[in-house]
Design a protein around this nucleic acid. Structure first.
Lengths: 244, 244
DNA sequence: CGCCTCATTGAGGGATCTCAAGTTGTGTGG
DNA sequence: CCACACAACTTGAGATCCCTCAATGAGGCG
């Protein structure tokens, strides 16, 4: 197993902080749970920092990550925004490679990760079909989310794509006051949305002019009319309908 | 179990045709395999026809399907193009609903499906962890493919998106002569690629003018310069690089 | 302050959308 | 076989949107 003098491995009760947040997708019988928690270590990642190498199986306790697909030009393309409860690296034994399966993973906010022992976790998978089913459901949810991104990017107008992006970002991330923090620079967000930073900037200000949002600073907007954003992002009626 | 007088259930050796094509992802011990094949029925779907209601667990033996995510306007958005070997509906027990999990599934070509017995299949899943791992790998591959679609749709230019689409469509579907059948109407394909049918038509003819393809008829093109298409679809160098 | 990065704004040209008309191919009925 | 209707694709023209290049703020840092 890994060394015990990990940056955060020396704390007196390694499982205490983990236990407090352990997500429901890892609900387990008490004995198993205790063993898993006992073998876990807590890792914290600063906003903007990448997932360190060597992370094997891990569970995201708090914060939000960005999963980027590496591109030939050295940058990445946003591909998913897993939140608390996501389990990383558990599929590696299923035929893939490392914990991140070849993706770049970066923290969008300060994140807490529970590093789990692979051997123990794989044992749990084999003995608890229920756990495996929950993790499969998680993978299916991620695939579903990727398909929502597809629908979003298929909007012909940049302003509509931005509206959809804000809705997706806010769906699980927005506090009550409607203030949404945008954890991307303009150039990166533009790349994800299939446009350029200048056009994206204009799209932000157009949404503001239409009263849908208010720009607090380049990295934060207040959602004023979610319904308006949904309209722009959603349906665009076209020609007469027809089957394939 | 289901009735035995299914349109194709009355054939003398229901498993014979299935056995011939049974994909490797369903490789099983001989006895299990025989039982599964014995309980299966063969279904054929014409090109353009939707997957009939009531299909539970099924394995695609030949042909290609389109998975469409239903949209508010009644049309769907293309979300995946599973080919032979895909297993449908096996995740329903994992928390979701029907065989198609809420997607519209349509045959792009004449397809052969093996309809499997759910109870038997679930038993197999529980007793053969290897099988489940292969199916999980399949789900992960689908998620991966959805992410490729994301990259494709993030291209700012319609011609580039079309080039990428042709590459994706041809990756597993192209015969040796490079003639690619396009199983979508212009308006639908335009919707999937985030543009309009007129612009898409012009993009096709631009690709032809550049010598990358030759338009045989509206539903078939010959790929003349795959490398050129890859270039257009692939990398688009942008501003100076930077982390998130 | 100088220097850097990032966001914004402006201007011009190119790409795309939209509406409209023309073309092709197919099936139907005489 | 031909006339016709119909659907899908193509082409054209003008308006709009977007990309590109360039210049200007705004903020952080030595």
């Amino acid at each position: 197993m890994a060394d015990r003098d990990h940056p955060l491995g020396a704390m007196a009760h390694p499982g205490a902080g983990v236990l407090r947040h352990m997500p429901e997708c890892l609900a387990l019988p008490a004995s198993k749970r205790a063993a898993l928690i006992d073998s876990s270590r807590l890792m914290q990642i600063a906003a903007g920092a990448p997932l360190p190498d060597g992370v094997d199986v891990a569970c995201l306790l708090s914060g939000r990550l960005a999963v980027l697909k590496p591109m030939p030009d050295g940058r990445g393309h946003i591909v998913g925004l897993p939140g608390a409860g996501a389990v990383l690296g558990w599929t590696a034994g299923a035929g893939n490679g490392a914990a991140t399966n070849g993706y770049d993973i970066t923290a969008l906010e300060p994140c807490e990760l529970a590093l789990l022992d692979r051997g123990l976790f794989c044992d749990l998978l084999q003995t608890l079909p229920d756990l495996e089913q929950r993790l499969i459901a998680q993978v299916l949810d991620e695939a579903e989310a990727a398909r929502d991104w597809l629908r979003l990017l298929a909007q012909p107008k940049v302003t509509d794509r931005l509206a959809g992006f804000l809705m997706m970002l806010g769906r699980e991330l927005m506090p009550g006051d409607g203030v949404l923090h945008i954890p991307f620079r303009r150039a990166d967000l533009a790349s994800y949305l299939g446009t350029r930073k200048e056009t994206l900037s204009r799209a932000f200000h157009q949404l503001e002019a239409e009263g849908a949002i208010r720009i607090l600073d380049p990295a934060a907007v207040q959602i004023l009319q979610p319904a308006l954003l949904e309209d722009m992002a959603g349906l665009d009626a076209e020609d007469p309908p027809a089957p394939i």
